[in-house]
């Protein structure tokens, strides 16, 4: 075999490898486009429909580009959702419980990750219990519990009890004690994140005479920023979009946004939003505008923070 032959065969091999790479990237691109279609189509549909005017909504020639833009859908949805008030309520719930959950869950996660104390196994079992027991099971008793809330009998010594129903406290107070919406998962995220951090820095802080809580606040918290961002975003999104608990604890006039959205089509019908034929079908733009208004705040937040979020997810080390 001559040197030239050898060279040729190597060249062919390199070519083959390159062709394979190109084929893979083309396949990958096609696949990504398909998945993006699945994810973006409903969102685009929602946005476009909510800007359609009542006249063009039933025009079969209008598919994607509306013939005339109108704000009717948005206006109707804002009115029927009682948007500003219910969004304000949802915002209070979301921000309050997120702040509370960040503190309580980070403390609990650190306590589990770095200390060996008697009964730690039991605490772990309790934590898993809070993750696994579906909140729906407990609704019938938590409803009564929150109606006459007394901190496990503590307040009733003084003959007091709080009515947490219909107020943001029904979410914020449990979150302060790591017992709020999906807080078990947050504790778990903090636990595995703190567990993955190196011991050496803590040891150094201890030798330098830094107390346990000071070490936690000034050394460990800054190192666990990705976990904080991850939990922050999850907590905001899950509180904003929670339906089950919100619908259970809020039954009066003022309700969180998602509960209002669920009832929107009924409210529209009762509110006299119907066209000449009286069909609900033409209410589509109001419904879509309502959906858009509901999801817009977390979506906008995500668009601006997605870089930090995606990076944090990768660095959190969810799995300990």
């Amino acid at each position: 075999m001559s040197i030239k032959n050898l060279f040729d065969s190597r060249y062919a091999l390199a070519n083959k490898k390159k062709a394979k790479e190109i084929a893979i990237s083309v396949f990958r691109l096609l696949f990504c486009i398909c998945i993006c279609y699945l994810f973006l189509y409903p969102i685009l549909y929602m946005i476009i429909t909510s800007f359609q005017s009542p006249s063009s909504i039933e025009d079969p020639t209008v598919i994607w580009v509306p013939k005339q833009l109108s704000l009717d859908g948005l206006k109707g949805a804002i009115k029927e959702l009682n948007y500003w008030k219910s969004a304000g309520l949802t915002l209070t719930i979301t921000l309050g419980s997120t702040a509370a959950a960040l503190c309580s869950c980070a403390l609990a996660g650190y306590g589990l990750a770095r200390f060996k104390f008697p009964g730690k196994f039991i605490v772990f079992v309790l934590l898993i219990l809070t993750i696994v027991v579906p909140p729906q099971i407990l609704y019938s008793s938590t409803y009564i519990l929150y109606r006459f809330f007394d901190f496990g009998g503590f307040l009733s010594i003084f003959g007091l009890h709080l009515n947490l129903l219909e107020s943001p406290w029904v979410f914020i107070l449990p979150s302060m004690f790591g017992a709020g919406l999906r807080n078990g998962i947050f504790i778990f995220i903090f636990y595995s994140s703190f567990k993955g951090l190196p011991y050496e820095i803590e040891e150094a802080a201890k030798i330098d005479g830094c107390g346990v809580f000071k070490t936690f606040l000034q050394v460990m918290v800054p190192m666990a920023v990705p976990a904080f961002i991850t939990v922050l975003l999850f907590s905001i999104v899950w509180h904003w979009t929670d339906y089950n608990s919100s619908a259970t604890y809020f039954t009066q006039e003022l309700r969180p946004l998602v509960v209002m959205l669920k009832n929107l089509s009924t409210n529209l019908y009762m509110g006299g939003y119907r066209d000449a034929s009286g069909s609900v079908f033409s209410l589509r733009m109001y419904l879509q505008a309502g959906a858009m208004l509901t999801i817009a705040p977390p979506l906008i937040l995500y668009i601006f923070t997605q870089k930090y979020f995606t990076e944090s997810i990768e660095r959190t080390g969810l799995v300990g």
């Binding site: 869950c105 609990a108 306590g111 200390f115 496990g152 936690f216």
Partner: peptide, 19 residues
């Protein structure tokens, strides 16, 4: 190590009261 229980105090209270 007993400090660990201090860190977990909020969670334990929460479990007793809310779960």
């Amino acid at each position: 190590n007993l400090n660990g229980l201090l860190f977990l105090l909020p969670f334990l209270i929460g479990f007793l009261c809310f779960y």
